[in-house]
Write a protein that binds this DNA or RNA. Structure first.
Lengths: 119, 119
DNA sequence: CGATGACATCGATAACTGTCAATATCGACG
DNA sequence: CGTCGATATTGACAGTTATCGATGTCATCG
């Protein structure tokens, strides 16, 4: 049984917070949102996220992602795992290859939480 | 009312990136954006940012911020410094008190970069 | 001037993070 | 079955970070 992370991931709880500038975030809310930002707060992971999210079909193969960086394969695998465990990337194994898919609604929610100022 | 930090801060360069999901972020872009996210990627700093941004007048006194946390004064001062150096908070000393003001346009740009999916 | 109070800086420490080489896992294929 | 190629995991190491107590700075007030 592949552990597909059906547990509560941080990403599930972000949608319920009003924007930063609207009212003070509670400690609980902050504790939920911070891991998501932490997962994104790395140049390599930002590029990985962007590569996957902007890729045709909304998904990308690890084999392609590895080539985009001057880093070792385990390092890329580690960063993908971080993004996956934060709930920002979905993981699917097809044959020998593994495909990651961006959870765009997670990005949308995060963007709204951070950037929205009026509603 | 001297403007501290008129130097280039990371926040100045975020507006020029198209959203994550639009096209792959370049390494340079990622290197510019990541520090901003890193500054926000901490529960205490998220709450600080939210407290200041949502405060009446758009600014808040350190004396008020300290009381909102169960942390030492140097620790809060440290987190405020991180947010300030990232370009997310402006700092102004008035008499004995120091006021921090949120750079809402920075938050808006960040939010757009992360969350925008269509344009 | 000396005291007080608000905030910043310093120095230390424990915990966390990014990276790699080595190794494991696991499908596909002959 | 045995090999190969694609990813993941492990273990180790260097660099970073969150936190605190102690101390410094600086404006205000008596």
């Amino acid at each position: 049984m592949s552990k597909s992370l059906t547990l509560l991931s941080p990403v599930d709880t972000v949608a319920c917070c009003s924007p930063l500038s609207r009212q003070p975030l509670s400690q609980q809310q902050a504790d939920q949102v911070a891991p998501l930002l932490k997962a994104l707060a790395d140049p390599v992971r930002l590029r990985l996220m962007s590569l996957v999210a902007s890729h045709v079909g909304g998904e990308a193969c690890v084999c392609d992602l590895n080539d985009a960086f001057d880093l070792s394969q385990p390092t890329i695998s580690h960063h993908l795992k971080v993004l996956h465990e934060a709930g920002l990337l979905d993981r699917e194994k097809r044959g020998v290859w593994v495909y990651y898919r961006a959870r765009t609604e997670a990005l949308t929610n995060l963007g709204t939480l951070i950037g929205e100022t009026s509603a």
